[in-house]
Design a protein around this nucleic acid. Structure first.
Length: 141
DNA sequence: GCCAACGTTGGC
DNA sequence: GCCAACGTTGGC
């Protein structure tokens, strides 16, 4: 099972919208590298829902790929997948935090900021989940 | 096939 | 709103 990070502008479609809808078709990706990543997804893969182009860019939640890719658009070049929400992060992890972490230095989304769908390694995934939980604990002390 | 011009994404 | 990064388009 692979892990991913998928970006959406919260003004357009945010984490709360996905929770409200229960599931959604992740359409509109018009970048070849991102489309390739969509086609590589399999059912059950987990992905971070990332809020981009907003006041505080951050990872907001975890979702699951619930149907593998299908064609998006007429020309056959693009793909979409269906996702559903799994859980919000206990505490959102902002981009600023991601950039501060040495362990995340090689993250695809940090290396290529404009890539809207990117892979996340096992180590990166685990690290970010720990950050999300740690932020929560810190708040309580 | 190269490259300049232009458009889009996304951080700040 | 600006700008950097990067992708796409079109002239040659």
């Amino acid at each position: 099972m692979a892990h991913w990070l998928m970006k959406s502008e919260p003004d357009e479609y945010g984490w709360d919208d996905l929770v409200r809808d229960g599931r959604t078709e992740w359409t509109g990706v018009r970048n070849h590298a991102a489309a390739k990543n969509l086609r590589a997804m399999t059912c059950g893969d987990r992905a971070f829902f990332y809020h981009s182009a907003c006041a505080v860019p951050a990872i907001a939640g975890i979702m699951e790929v619930s149907r593998e890719w299908r064609a998006d658009g007429e020309d056959g070049k693009w793909a979409s997948v269906e996702v559903n929400p799994v859980a919000p992060l206990p505490r959102a992890v902002p981009l600023k935090k991601l950039k501060e972490e040495a362990a995340l230095r090689d993250m695809a989304t940090l290396k290529q900021g404009r890539l809207s769908v990117s892979p996340v390694s096992e180590a990166e995934w685990t690290h970010i989940c720990a950050l999300a939980a740690m932020g929560d604990a810190k708040e309580q002390t």
